[in-house]
Design a protein around this nucleic acid. Structure first.
Length: 587
RNA sequence: CGGGGUAUAGCUCAGCUUGGUAGAGCGCUUGCUUGGGGUGCAAGAGGCCAGCGGUUCGAAUCCGCUUACUCCGACCA
């Protein structure tokens, strides 16, 4: 189980530790990975992985490889440098936008650095796979991707260059795709479980990659960028971008008597808080009307979006509903032009030049407050249908904790997390654009049905640190720890301690355990601190106190549990502790 | 891209307001000391003060531009 003969002395290890927190590091994983000497930054979002980090990354990769192979994957390595032609052919040269690192060769030909590899692999496969007999195929690689991120941040969590495992599945039909997708779903669960992570698989928006179905694998951590909503009673879980609330409670909203609409003066009351405070009503009685600029491939238009005053517009849902390339809030000038009033007084009544899209919730507010499209004025007692109508009524809001689950109506919970894996059903999006077909049993050409499945490897490492640390440093889950055990002789200059430390070091190494010995001429405290910071699961202290009884101390990093162990029992004890701390299957 | 912030020794920062030629702590080197949670003492090494331009007798310090880094909002593994 703990194979791999890798021995190391701390005196030789290239892992410069820092006592202070570098100013650039905001989140725990970034701070500890820098301080413990795992990574160094080369440019914003571009990092060097030092030996300890590389060992962790290779362990994660090893787990990923095993599970990909188990799920029928075959490893390949595709080019990072890619010609523009294939991106032009798929249409993404223009659509992918500024995130694509573009460059020219000496002949002025366009190239890019691969942010993902659908084009390359589809072009590869279309030339070589011709018959239904060649399918299915599942090909993967573990390779460096380049994306010119808008804003790299959070250390390894959002980088411009990062290692990714990407697998592409090629099937004959939807049924085959379903098989591949399920195989990957299961493989991902195994991978993140084996890495010792607490995670959720959630329904996700398929975003720029495109396609018909998608799940994200999200490691739960407060510092994560994604928000997920989940239901504890039925298991529903979805990314906030996609999560919906049941409309069960919407329907039986109010039986309040409709009052006559009335314009009121609301001087200088722009925000929801201003208006609710001024009029003494709850935000749920307000209709928030926002003007959006919608960009399509060849044109732009403005729309008004109405949601309840306490809600936020979900721009992903808006974008998907309109099949738009981009949606953004209109600027103040445009708002004034369209509504005839400064920002803060927009409302659905009398808004004639733009279509109104309304969330279902706003259609049931009795006697709502809405902007009057006039400076310093709102309407009170407005009612949907009587006073205004939307062009379309559809779900456009972010869910919040407490909203009813769409499946079982139990209250939803929300939590933050780090998206470490994402699986997509692509269908024929790329095979049709790039003309990747096979001949079926009837000699008919059919588009290959594809899926794509990614895992961010460094991000997974960072997520593990986010999830498992304390005030002293990292606490690695055993399966991805760079070394299992550190041996700390309290005083390496002492002959007895040194000899025993060396002896144990060789015994453990011979048993296949990955061990590092701190042979530095440092104070015990320094060595303890570094060992804790670096996060090795077990530490063996060889010092005079226990040596008197022919014993050494074995200490568990996770909770500080310490055992005094006879020197002859060390290997057995270490093995049993490592085994005991293997992650359990969590399904 | 928009909005803020920062840039001085390897790291964390002072110095700038009020221009006069560079500092601390940690780390590093050497020696002694100490030796179970970042020992103590002493002596050292180390800076084109991000870059460019301007003002001035004189600029880390004042002014302008540029670049990099970083935080807050739209993308994604």
């Amino acid at each position: 189980m703990y194979r791999g003969i890798s021995i190391m002395r701390m005196s030789r290890l290239f892992a410069p530790t820092l006592r202070e927190v570098p100013a650039e590091a905001e989140v725990i994983s970034h701070q500890y990975l820098l301080r413990a000497g795992y990574i160094r930054k080369t440019a914003a979002g571009v990092y060097c992985y030092l030996p300890l980090a590389w060992r962790v990354l290779r362990k994660i990769e090893g787990i990923v490889r095993e599970e990909m192979d188990r799920a029928g994957g075959q490893e390949v390595l595709l080019p990072a440098l890619q010609p523009a032609e294939i991106w032009q052919e798929s249409g993404r040269w223009d659509v992918y936008g500024k995130e694509l690192f573009r460059l020219k060769d000496r002949h002025e030909r366009d190239f890019c650095l691969g942010p993902t590899h659908e084009e390359v692999i589809t072009v590869l496969v279309r030339g070589e796979i011709n018959s239904w007999r060649d399918l299915p195929k599942r090909l993967y690689q573990i390779q460096t991707k380049a994306r010119d991120e808008i804003r790299p941040r959070l250390g390894l969590i959002r980088c411009r260059e990062f290692i990714m495992k990407d697998l592409y599945s090629f099937d004959r039909d939807e049924e085959g795709l379903e098989d591949s997708y399920q195989a990957m779903y299961e493989a991902y669960r195994r991978i993140f479980t084996r890495c010792g992570l607490t995670f959720k698989a959630v329904e996700a928006d398929s975003g720029a990659i495109g396609g018909t179905g998608s799940h994200e694998f999200t490691v739960l951590a407060d510092t994560g960028e994604s928000v997920i909503a989940y239901c504890n009673s039925c298991g529903y879980a979805a990314n906030l971008e996609r999560a919906v609330a049941s409309d069960a409670t919407i329907k039986n909203e109010s039986d309040e008597q409709q009052l006559p609409i009335q314009k009121v003066s609301t001087p200088d009351k722009h925000s929801i808080e201003d208006v609710t405070g001024f009029l003494g009503v709850d935000a749920t009685k307000l209709v928030k009307t926002l003007i959006y600029r919608i960009t399509y491939r060849e044109r732009q238009e403005m729309v008004a979006v109405a949601v309840r005053g306490d809600r936020d517009v979900n721009e992903i849902k808006l974008k998907n509903a309109l099949d738009a390339l981009e949606v953004e809030l209109a600027d103040a000038v445009a708002v004034e032009e369209i509504t005839g009033a400064p920002v803060g007084f927009a409302g659905p009544i009398g808004l004639e030049d733009v279509p109104i899209l309304a969330d279902p919730e706003v259609t049931v507010i009795a006697n709502a407050v809405v902007g009057a499209n006039e400076i310093d004025a709102h309407f009170i007692n407005s009612n949907y249908e009587r006073d205004w109508k939307a062009a379309k009524v559809l779900d456009l809001k972010n869910v919040v904790a407490g909203d009813p689950c769409p499946h079982c109506n139990a209250p939803l919970d929300t939590t933050r997390g780090i998206e470490v894996g994402h699986i997509f059903k692509l269908g024929t999006k790329y095979s049709s654009a790039l003309n990747a077909t096979y001949l079926d049993e009837n000699g008919q050409a059919q588009y290959i049905i594809m899926g794509s499945y990614g895992i961010g490897i460094p991000r997974t490492m960072a997520a593990a640190v986010e999830q498992s640390n304390d005030e002293d440093g990292i606490i690695w889950p055993v399966p991805i720890a760079p070394y299992h055990v550190s041996i700390v002789p309290v005083n390496y200059n002492n002959d007895e301690q040194r000899e025993w430390a060396e002896e144990l070091y060789h015994q453990l190494t011979a048993a296949g355990i990955e061990v590092i010995i701190d042979d530095r001429d440092e104070r015990a405290g320094v060595k303890f601190k570094d060992s804790d910071l670096m996060g090795f699961p077990l530490r063996i202290t060889v010092g005079p106190r226990s040596l008197k009884e022919n014993k050494v101390e074995i200490r568990l990093r996770a909770d500080g549990t310490t055992w005094l162990v006879d020197k002859t029992e060390v290997v057995a004890k270490v093995q049993s502790e490592l085994m005991a701390h293997q992650p359990q299957r969590q399904l």
